[in-house]
Design a protein around this nucleic acid. Structure first.
Lengths: 227, 227
DNA sequence: GTCTATAGTAAGATAGAC
DNA sequence: GTCTATCTTACTATAGAC
């Protein structure tokens, strides 16, 4: 945050070691955390593997929890970027096809699929973050981030803001999260792909008639989407 | 475990204080853990509220984690008992009705509904256990217990043992668990009941065509169930 | 910015008297 | 079985040399 000030402008600092140190600490943290989980990991082992020091770790991150959180944010960013790129591509492809534009559910599933693919590619981190072993309060952060992501994509589904929509988002999040865990735990890529297909299939079942409505007489979303 | 030996048989020990102490510690633990979560709760506060001592706590439970786990086991037992009773009643009612026996999915949903009802009745504990703030390894224990429960009820659905059935159980567990959390967080009973109905509805959507099969040509379970 | 060394602190766990 | 007092551990945080 306050890093830029203090750097001699335009000097040889562009190859400063500070970014290397940061990277080394994050890479070591990835190893140690994925091997031992958050609680059992010790800061000492992280700095040892990074060839760095406790002081540097505190200088860059502020503590064990923040180190873990930074790792998660990097991972999450990669996930979300891949997902929104996939959504954009699906939208283009759908718009260009003779059949007309892709349905909101199709777009959503494209994003979900990208997310699940990423869970296989970065399965060590995915397992770490989905196992529930993080710093105090991490589960809450992770859950709310997940809901936000769903809600964001739900703009596609033009949901009204009733109390049951929260449940809808929560359940979709839970299904995709649990699916991602199973993907990350798969024995090989082939099995992972089978699991991904199955998860998408379950997501489609859940979305088929839109969110359960408070008012039973409300039309299901499906009817609104296919005029 | 080794409690019975050492008790003078047939004496006034039947009103011994040991059970009172145990209960007092569990009740205090329920208060402190539900108020502050596992990590932030301190053993000192538990024994203070229980009017007991650190030594007694360790004598009876062995530690903070085990105390938490005991609390969970009591809660879980209540849940599972209510669920299996509900399943038994649904089976009887279904068998007695003129329309014939209840479908496996109906029985399963009866159990799920009982579970969700219990999450409202004991919402303080439900929130505690579903929030992800427990001792190291707790999430793993909780998850596997949930899967066991689903698998047990899945005997009703006569599932074959393919690798994707694990996913099916995991996803049903996740949906019911996430639903239970939302129920426990509801503002009042009326809202809780709406959420319960919605969760059951989502569960039915998921179960409608049975587990996604590895072999695409396999008949959906639904066709097997309605001959 | 990086490092070593060290003090501080909180809370879980244990020992041993009663 | 119950209790008090003490031990141990592990992370937090800081100081100060380079």
């Amino acid at each position: 945050m306050t890093k830029p000030i203090g750097k001699p402008a335009g000097s040889a600092w562009q190859w400063s070691r500070t970014e290397q140190t940061r990277r080394a600490l994050l890479d070591a943290a990835r190893e140690v955390f994925t091997e031992q989980g958050f609680a059992d990991a010790s800061i000492a082992e992280v700095v040892e593997r990074a060839g760095s020091s406790v002081g540097s770790l505190y200088h860059h991150f502020g503590g064990k929890s923040e180190l873990f959180l930074t790792l998660w944010q990097e991972h999450q960013q990669a996930h979300e970027q891949a997902a929104s790129q996939a959504v954009a591509e699906a939208r283009q492809a759908g718009g260009a096809s003779p059949a007309g534009s892709a349905s909101p559910a199709d777009l959503f599933c494209a994003g979900a699929r990208a997310y699940l693919d990423g869970s296989w590619l970065r399965r060590d981190l995915a397992l770490l973050f989905l196992t529930g072993d993080g710093p105090p309060g991490f589960e809450v952060i992770r859950r709310s981030r997940g809901h936000e992501w769903i809600a964001q994509n739900d703009a596609l589904l033009r949901l009204p803001d009733t109390s049951l929509d929260r449940l809808y988002a929560a359940i979709l999040t839970a299904v995709i999260g649990e699916g991602a865990r199973e993907v990350a735990a798969a024995r090989n890529r082939r099995q992972a792909e089978r699991i991904i297909e199955a998860v998408i299939c379950y997501v489609r079942r859940l979305m088929a008639d839109g969110p359960v409505s408070e008012d039973a007489s409300t039309l299901p979303v499906r009817d609104l989407l296919a005029p």
